[in-house]
């Protein structure tokens, strides 16, 4: 993976486009964009994107690998699917954005402090442990994501909510200790391992 991190891309040659097509979920579609910009305009989070989707697609074609993969932008997607609904060329933009984010993360190029990325990684780590999301642990880890003092403050602020949920039996403090998971956790591990293996092979194959 290391050599891919440093891959040199010639401008406007299709090296990076090909890399995206091979390795990014729905990356095949990037070439179909006609730069109308309706995705960028339709996105409710639009103003927060440094590079809106259509621009990212152009950057991919222009071979701006570093800029794209280290960009904050695709992490802005909240999966509202507005862009997909509007795209005149049928591009599954939401999926491409997630695909790009995931790929950047795998390569270790994603911005380290990107909050969406941090949340996603915590979510994932939490999930794969037992095959179910442990909401309490996830919540607590998120509270303390930005340091201990920040965590205490956030926790205090959210305390009434937590008490209410406990009363309504929507939250059990016991979950903090172990918590329940899927029945066949070995099976889950096997699935995840296999998936990881397939992806690695794909990248290795592309890279060879």
């Amino acid at each position: 993976m290391s050599n891919m991190n440093q891959a040199m891309v010639e401008k406007y040659r299709n090296d990076f486009l090909k890399e995206v097509k091979a390795n990014v979920e729905e990356g095949d579609w990037v070439q179909m964009c006609m730069q109308c910009g309706v995705c960028s305009g339709s996105c409710p989070f639009g103003p927060y994107w440094d590079h809106p989707p259509q621009e990212l697609f152009m950057m991919i074609r222009a071979g701006k690998r570093e800029e794209v993969l280290s960009s904050n932008s695709m992490w802005m997607c909240t999966s509202c699917y507005n862009c997909i609904a509007r795209c005149p060329r049928e591009l599954p933009i939401t999926h491409i954005m997630h695909g790009l984010a995931h790929y950047a993360d795998r390569l270790g190029l994603a911005p380290k402090e990107q909050p969406t990325r941090k949340f996603a990684n915590r979510f994932w780590d939490n999930l794969v442990k037992k095959g179910r999301v442990n909401e309490l642990k996830l919540g607590v880890s998120l509270y303390f994501m930005n340091g201990f003092i920040e965590g205490i403050k956030t926790a205090m602020a959210a305390a009434p909510l937590g008490m209410g949920m406990m009363k309504a039996k929507r939250l059990s403090p016991m979950e903090y200790f172990g918590g329940h998971g899927v029945k066949d956790s070995k099976g889950l591990d096997a699935i995840l391992k296999k998936a990881r293996q397939i992806e690695d092979e794909k990248i290795a194959k592309y890279n060879s």
């Binding site: 406007y12 299709n14 070439q31 006609m34």
Partner: peptide, 14 residues
Amino acid sequence: FYRSGQRKGITFTK
């Protein structure tokens, strides 16, 4: 035809 070209991987740059 334009779409077919894109599908075949022709890139277009304004």
